[in-house]
């Protein structure tokens, strides 16, 4: 199959999943994709509602995403899922295993699942995942679901990318919640206490709500939803909680604000990536080499080197 972007865009418009998958790869690989193709895709997006699922490993995120997707499908909505797993910083490889829990969605024509590795997230996971979400959105999916492990920076990216952020915990998360509360606790619009049929679930919920009540009162108080994802329990409550959050965002005109923020963030990230590419031309690299050569005698400093590089860049712009 050809990688010609115009052809891909044509096929994409007639609903070809193969073209959709290929366009996602082009985005992931920083491939040559003309801006007018990107524009065309972007302009078609903006309809889908975006939900992020995050939480510690083994909390049952994939199983929950599987169940909630089936529930949306019953409502007649189509769903795009972006399942993010980390790339090994040592080998560059990744094992993407979220589909194991979503096998019964594979052959549903209204669902498209894509596994993504973080790939060192140069330029930010959020931008890449968001671009993929934009494509799924443009393809006509009603709901976009991101799924990512919440142990590092990626959970902050998910807040930017999602309209509603769901943090999935289990009764045993108690102590780890303490450790992670600075991150996970602050980003949740909704908490799910999954595996709630286990011992200690009610205590864990009490502790969690105690922590939440210690915080300053906010307009939106994140609810805690009890689920047992493998038994399909609590899924409707979770759906209701997501709907309520959506209504809240709409009433307070926060949806538009989120989308504006997302737009600004994308522009920032694109500008810095593109500027960086233009910045490091042959001459700039030579200037850096010269500074490195002078390093032994301490004849240079990072500040001086940076300023000289910027001066060179400005000059080359002025010449154009």
């Amino acid at each position: 199959m050809t990688l010609n972007p115009e052809k891909l865009l044509n096929d994409f418009e007639t609903g070809s999943k193969r073209a959709l998958a290929r366009l996602i790869s082009l985005i992931e690989n920083n491939g040559k994709l003309a801006d007018d193709v990107r524009d065309a895709l972007y302009q078609k997006s903006g309809r889908a509602y975006r939900i992020g699922f995050t939480g510690p490993p083994g909390a049952g995120k994939s199983t929950l995403v599987n169940q909630i997707t089936k529930a949306y499908r019953q409502q007649g909505k189509t769903v795009g899922i972006i399942a993010v797993d980390p790339t090994s910083p040592f080998t560059g490889g990744a094992l993407l295993g979220d589909r194991v829990r979503m096998n019964d969605l594979t052959l549903d024509d209204g669902v498209f699942i894509r596994s993504m590795a973080t790939r060192g997230s140069l330029g930010g996971l959020s931008t890449k995942a968001q671009e993929v979400a934009d494509i799924l959105d443009a393809f006509g999916k009603d709901i976009i679901i991101y799924e990512t492990v919440g142990v590092g920076q990626s959970e902050l990216d998910i807040v930017e990318a999602a309209d509603t952020t769901v943090v999935v915990l289990v009764p045993e998360s108690g102590d780890s919640v303490q450790a992670m509360k600075a991150g996970l606790m602050e980003i949740a619009d909704i908490f799910v206490m999954n595996k709630a049929d286990r011992e200690g679930a009610d205590r864990a919920i009490r502790e969690l709500s105690a922590i939440l009540h210690l915080r300053e009162a906010r307009d939106w108080q994140p609810p805690i939803v009890k689920c047992v994802a493998v038994k399909q329990e609590g899924i409707n409550d979770l759906l209701t909680a997501i709907d309520r959050h959506y209504c809240y965002l709409q009433e307070h005109h926060l949806l538009e604000e989120k989308r504006r923020e997302r737009f600004v963030q994308s522009v920032h990230s694109l500008v810095s990536t593109r500027l960086k590419n233009e910045f490091w031309d042959e001459r700039a690299r030579r200037i850096l080499e010269q500074h490195i050569a002078g390093l032994d005698q301490r004849k240079t400093s990072p500040y001086r080197a940076a300023q000289q590089l910027i001066d060179h860049f400005k000059q080359s712009l002025a010449k154009q």
Partner: peptide, 14 residues
């Protein structure tokens, strides 16, 4: 696992 360690992106289906 071996393919991951070789730097590939591996999708495991179950």
């Amino acid at each position: 696992s071996a393919l991951r360690d070789a730097g590939f992106e591996v999708i495991y289906s179950g």
